[in-house]
């Protein structure tokens, strides 16, 4: 899932400074799971905004709602249309994709982000997340025992470790395990060490921005 964190209040308050009617729009997808922008966090942020304005003696109306998935147009539309003309600005609590999806669907509506999207990651424990996937578009996890060297190796090396690792730790940080050492041990545990002897990898790196088209799923014009 995508991992995000709320922006500092100072930055959020500055962005919404000129507006009185604010729709705080959460997302029930990834950001709910990582406790950054779900219905609960929408309530927290709305309360903080109201409390800040009350201190300053300024009026504010906060509307609170959450889309099922803010990156899906059909999930955004009913929520925003339900409250049409009741707000001046949408303060999105979704990831960057969610913010852009709203902006694209409602081009005349100003949408502001209240989260910083950090990475695609996994939960190590409740409250701790680590980066797991760089969405490189050419997955090699099948050869690396489910450990991604593109993400977890500081140099994204594809064919084994560099010379910088020491005692199983990466040279960029003593807290970061060497991904390739982990891959070696995992393959050894799985009796798959011969995977390391496969031909060197040449990777088909993607061109950004990416675009995926599935003709079988696209709308068809009835003739």
């Amino acid at each position: 899932m995508l991992i995000a964190e709320r922006k500092p209040m100072e930055e959020i308050l500055e962005m919404i400074e000129d507006f009185e009617r604010i729709l705080v729009l959460g997302c029930k997808g990834c950001v709910t799971v990582c406790c950054a922008g779900g219905p609960r966090e929408v309530k927290t942020l709305s309360t903080l905004i109201r409390m800040d304005r009350k201190q300053k003696g300024r009026k504010v109306i906060t509307l609170e709602d959450s889309t099922e998935l803010q990156c899906e147009p059909e999930s955004i539309k009913p929520v925003l249309e339900k409250m049409a003309n009741q707000y001046d600005v949408v303060l999105s609590m979704a990831c960057g994709a969610g913010v852009q999806a709203v902006a694209k669907l409602f081009p005349d509506q100003l949408v502001l982000p209240s989260l910083n999207t950090n990475f695609t990651g996994i939960a190590e424990e409740h409250g701790v997340w680590t980066e797991a996937c760089l969405a490189c578009g050419d997955c090699i996890l099948g050869r690396t025992a489910g450990i991604c060297p593109v993400t977890r190796c500081a140099k994204s090396l594809l064919n084994g470790p560099c010379g910088g690792a020491s005692e199983g730790k990466c040279e960029v940080s003593k807290d970061q395990p060497c991904a390739w050492q982990e891959i070696y041990h995992a393959l050894k545990r799985l009796n798959m060490l011969h995977y390391l002897k496969q031909k060197p990898q040449v990777k088909d790196w993607p061109v950004h921005p990416g675009r995926v088209v599935r003709e079988d799923l696209r709308e068809v014009e009835a003739t």
Binding site: R40, K43, T44, T47, L48, R50, M51, K54
Partner: peptide
């Protein structure tokens, strides 16, 4: 007691 409960009390 959630974060929102405490904030609601203050608000």
């Amino acid at each position: 007691v959630s974060v929102n409960h405490i904030l609601m009390a203050i608000e």
